[in-house]
């Protein structure tokens, strides 16, 4: 449904996208995962024909982003990152405005937006500016869906939204996927990545990896350990960073995720070392890597020359 091949895009001094390629199958929920400055927004703008790439090809459906931009624009729903609706129009006015300019009515596409719209319908006479972050996001999604697009582009829809609204938002996407809509969504939250069927990890304009969330987790190269003790986190992390066998040590919630330089006898040696440093109640357990673990592993590999 979406084909991206060797896209390159530079702004004056920075390379926003460097040779990006991936494919999104029809009906797939595809996630672009990466921090600010990874190039997510630029990529979205290229795919929605708002920007032209310097090099490379891309197609949305059967249409080329350069030649057939008019056709693409009719077929896609787009929710830009900064999109904040018309603050001084009411919920209903916003929605019917977007319906009308896309040549449709709320009623015609009601089946598609119904599940989402019922949640904001009680506030339909409220100005969009007075809605909470989560509500705004829902309304924006309705506006992007109102013309029954085949492809939905969502640029960081969950940024600045609290965890509850974020969870609801992802549940909504799942429902939309069931309706057969292809969805390309970006997020800086690693924990949201596992909600997608396929993800591309992006960093500084480059694709670090493309796989299913499971595949990404499995590709973590080393045995991973979760370490904690009764002393405070800062002390534990400092001691681990001083340990000569440490390959990596990152805090994750209440424990530290640790990899070792050697293959054998890891937990015994580590336990001994930590005990020497005065840590008590040390727990060292093998752990399955998360997407974030893998992302950081790939990042540190990129940084090495």
């Amino acid at each position: 449904m979406i084909q991206v091949a060797h896209i390159v895009k530079s702004y004056e001094s920075t390379k926003a996208l460097q040779d990006i390629s991936f494919d999104v199958v029809q009906g797939q929920l595809f996630g672009l995962i990466g921090p600010d400055g990874a190039g997510k927004t630029t990529l979205f703008r290229i795919l929605t024909t708002l920007l032209l790439p310097d090099e490379g090809q891309a197609r949305v459906g059967e249409w080329d982003i350069r030649k057939d931009y008019k056709k693409i624009r009719k077929q896609v729903g787009y929710m830009p990152g900064r999109f904040s609706l018309y603050q001084d129009l009411t919920v209903e006015e916003n929605l019917s405005f977007f319906a009308t300019i896309f040549g449709t009515t709320i009623r015609e596409s009601y089946h598609l937006i119904k599940d989402i719209y019922v949640q904001i319908e009680p506030f339909k006479d409220r100005r969009a500016g007075a809605l909470s972050g989560g509500m705004k996001q829902k309304l924006a999604l309705c506006c992007a869906l109102v013309h029954s697009p085949q492809v939905l582009f969502l640029d960081e829809p969950t940024t600045g939204v609290d965890p509850v609204s974020r969870k609801e938002f992802w549940d909504m996407l799942k429902n939309l996927k069931r309706a057969g809509i292809t969805i390309l969504v970006s997020t800086p939250f690693m924990d949201e990545a596992s909600r997608c069927e396929q993800i591309a990890l992006l960093q500084k304009g480059k694709v670090l990896a493309i796989d299913t969330p499971k595949g990404i987790r499995k590709s973590f190269s080393k045995p991973l350990w979760s370490v904690n003790s009764n002393t405070d986190m800062y002390q534990l992390l400092q001691d681990l960073n001083r340990y000569d066998r440490t390959a990596s040590a990152f805090t994750f919630g209440e424990s530290v995720h640790y990899t070792d330089r050697q293959e054998e006898g890891i937990s015994e040696a580590l336990r001994q070392y930590l005990a020497q440093q005065g840590h008590r109640e040390v727990r060292i357990q093998p752990l399955e890597a998360s997407i974030e673990d893998r992302f950081m592993e790939l990042m540190s590999r990129e940084d090495e020359p």
Partner: peptide, 10 residues
């Protein structure tokens, strides 16, 4: 407000 992007795509 980012609305221009939507209008252009419409």
């Amino acid at each position: 407000f980012g609305n221009m992007e939507i209008l252009l795509v419409s």
